[in-house]
């Protein structure tokens, strides 16, 4: 192959195409869905490379990139040393040069040491350069509590990072979305922060074999009901579904809206649901102070105040460092019990 970067022209995917069915019998793990998205896009676009700790020879710290070294070779699947600020910055330079890097953080907790690169450089480059250089890069990795990892390894970075203009943020809750959203992220010209969860990597569900792209900013209704609108994203969507099923057994039916992306945020979907329910609970695994839930509720109050029959309620992780002990960690998360209670409160 003799191609320069300038020769490569891959048009934007069709984001208005009808998506394949959510249900089906091609059951694979969340991690395999992520791998499928990366591999499909890497086959199409030679500018994409994957760099991160243990992504190549170790086959991925969480086996997300298993087998990719074999298929794509060491020039495109690249083991980095434990040096997040260094390799995140390297990715940014490579993106400015015209490549399409995927930078994997073993955990988003570790991205804190790369904060200057990922917050100061990637999202601001287009603005600082007066439109000359953007930064088409995907940062991805595990976010939120794993299993008893303690406070330094259990970061939910969404509230911290989504504050910064210039970046997009996608947080899938299931294998189907993991593939469809990551493929869209890899075709987007802006920096995308893609937040996965260690606790979901083994989740199994139907994932279509075909290529599909889930548009950003379009929430998906996971449960339907007219009692209350429950808004969430990422792993806590699963807690919401659990809560919705418990509530349904008591005859209370709620809308569970999976936002899929935080920036952009599908407020119109929230509006449609609120018109029907007049009640809202926002479930977010960040800490409550200045969280994504706070932001969603602010927007609801600013725009849809008249629809509300009860004050909005947020369900976050408890406002303490993530604990180690199992019962403490369980209590700390925005689990189904807290959600059920919050929904009932809006109905009281």
């Amino acid at each position: 192959m003799t191609t320069t970067i300038a020769d490569i022209d891959i048009p934007a995917p069709n984001l208005t195409a009808e998506l394949p069915p959510f249900e089906g019998d091609r059951v694979i793990q969340f991690r395999e869905a992520l791998r499928e998205a990366m591999s499909e896009e890497m086959r199409r676009d030679p500018r994409i490379f994957l760099m991160g700790e243990e992504v190549a020879e170790y086959n991925g710290a969480y086996k997300v990139s298993q087998g990719m070294l074999e298929e794509f070779g060491a020039k495109r699947i690249i083991d980095s040393p434990i040096s997040e600020n260094g390799f995140a910055g390297l990715g940014i330079g490579a993106a400015m040069y015209g490549l399409r890097p995927i930078i994997e953080f073993m955990s988003w907790s570790f991205s804190l040491v790369a904060a200057d690169q990922i917050l100061n450089n990637a999202p601001k480059m287009l603005y600082m350069s007066g439109g000359q250089w953007g930064c088409p890069i995907v940062f991805r990795g595990n976010d939120g509590a794993g299993g008893q990892l303690g406070s330094t390894h259990s970061w939910c970075v969404e509230a911290l990072y989504a504050n910064v203009p210039g970046l997009k943020m996608a947080i899938p809750s299931c294998p189907y979305d993991a593939k469809g959203l990551l493929k869209t992220a890899l075709r987007d010209p802006d920096p995308v922060f893609f937040l996965e969860s260690e606790r979901m990597l083994g989740d199994k569900a139907h994932v279509p074999e075909e290529e599909y792209y889930i548009p950003f900013g379009q929430a998906e209704l996971r449960r339907e009901g007219d009692s209350c609108t429950v808004v969430s994203f990422g792993r806590p969507v699963n807690f919401c579904i659990e809560a919705a099923d418990q509530l349904a057994a008591e005859g209370i039916n709620v809308d569970v809206l999976d936002m899929r992306t935080i920036r952009p945020l599908d407020v119109e979907a929230i509006e449609r649901s609120l018109r029907k329910t007049n009640r809202i609970v926002v479930v977010d695994q960040s800490w409550p102070f200045a969280s994504i839930a706070s932001e969603v509720i602010t927007q609801v109050i600013e725009r849809f105040f008249d629809y509300l029959d009860h004050q909005p309620i947020r369900v976050n992780s408890d406002d303490v460092p993530a604990p180690y002990a199992k019962p403490l960690e369980q209590a700390f998360l925005p689990h189904a019990g807290k959600i059920v209670e919050a929904v009932k409160q809006t109905l009281s």
């Binding site: 390799f87 910055g89 990715g91 940014i92 330079g93 490579a94 400015m96 040069y97």
Partner: peptide, 8 residues
């Protein structure tokens, strides 16, 4: 690091 990425 960004310059390193340009060279990369």
């Amino acid at each position: 690091p960004v310059g390193t990425g340009l060279a990369f």
